[in-house]
Design a protein around this nucleic acid. Structure first.
Lengths: 224, 224
DNA sequence: ACCTGAACACCGTTCAAGT
DNA sequence: ACCTGAACACCGTTCAAGT
């Protein structure tokens, strides 16, 4: 569809590669981000990428920085001056979450990178600043970062995900082996009863995220 | 070192492959668990594995089940009859953590598997049973599972890990750019002051885990 | 029934060669 | 300087062939 078929192709650049990689990840997931595929997307051979990116890890770090830039921008835009530390923290984290929801591949990427990028470090530094202004000791702020974990950036990896297990096979499994998981079966039944239309399905991810976030923030506020 | 060089090799079996895979993962990490490498470890070609395992995903699911069996066994052994729901939950989760610490590759494996194994589902089912007996509504127990996330199984993936960032390069980076992360710098300084010997380094993972766990359990107990 | 060798379709990456 | 083609060392997996 690109009519510029015969024109001299736009010169490659790190920016261009990163934008192509984001588009691929948004469309087909993180595992589709391949040197060959990115090369194809920008109309070059895979090996040409190495002139603008040290290696694949460098490219992935670039993606992290792009997402962090989006988060920082949104956090700044949605900030409200009069907020208490708890309100500000909550707002900031939920803003970060909105960006994460737009890039479903980002959580896995953030968890996978071996070293933390400067942008991620700075994000956490500002959270500590928020807590210090709210009366936290350094020690408690430190605990808070660990307790929040990835939730500070707006996501949690949901190891226990009944929705994902509700595939045809697993659903049948659960029914047949209901005596093996009696409590979960009862839990499912009650939640289905409370939501007969089943509009939000098994779990409302956003509600669960906010419940856990408030649980943590309230607990931290109490220990302040 | 295996003297049984000329003897007819022990026949392959799923059990044998899984034990070999665990040994490889314990020694060289999860990414070293390769069909070819497992085959080599049991003295067979990689393609022979497919007679005892559907594919690599099936093999990884088998690893999850092995770890879960270890956890279930330890949880049962360390249980204390008179415990309140909170004490029992805490003890159970810390027992699971001990197993996870013996298999550093397990957390990443658990996070990576696309579908939850029956053993993991049953583990969570028993946690719900514990909470129900402690007076939880199904709704609150459901929230609790989501809030705990992977912590229910004794680990948290520690996105923010100053220890990992304390590599030579990052340490220099932090020093040079101390004005970029003033709060973290202050935090580091105070923690270094409180622990002049530096025996536990930047963070005590176990203490951080227990702090976050207690924060969550206390909060849940209060909402019970 | 169980195991094997060769082969296929993918990876990331190196390297010498082109312009 | 930037880009390329061929090649290398890996993957998981298929398939026809062996015993």
């Amino acid at each position: 569809m690109a009519q510029a078929n015969s024109e001299p192709r736009a010169p490659l650049s790190r920016e261009l590669l990163l934008r192509a990689a984001v588009a691929i990840a948004d469309a087909d997931g993180l595992e589709a981000v391949t040197m060959r595929r990115v090369g194809e997307a920008v109309g070059a051979e895979a090996m040409s990428l190495y002139h603008h990116v040290a290696n694949k890890g460098d490219l992935l770090d670039g993606l992290v920085d792009l997402v962090m830039a989006e988060i920082d921008e949104r956090v700044e835009r949605t900030a409200v001056p009069g907020d208490t530390w708890l309100q500000a923290m909550r707002r900031r984290i939920l803003s970060a979450r909105e960006v994460m929801l737009q890039h479903p591949w980002a959580p896995r990427l953030f968890e996978t990178r071996p070293t933390m990028s400067l942008a991620v470090v700075r994000y956490h530094d500002r959270l500590v600043g928020l807590m210090r202004a709210g009366g936290f000791s350094y020690d408690l702020a430190h605990h808070a970062l660990h307790a929040l974990g990835s939730r500070a950036l707006g996501f949690s990896q949901e190891l226990f995900d009944p929705a994902a297990s509700a595939s045809p096979a697993s659903e049948r499994m659960l029914r047949e082996l209901a005596d093996q998981v009696p409590h979960l079966t009862g839990m499912m039944a009650e939640i289905a009863h409370d939501d007969p239309a089943g509009t939000i399905g098994w779990c409302d991810d956003q509600a669960e995220f906010e419940f856990a976030l408030d649980l943590l923030l309230d607990g931290l506020d109490r220990r302040r």
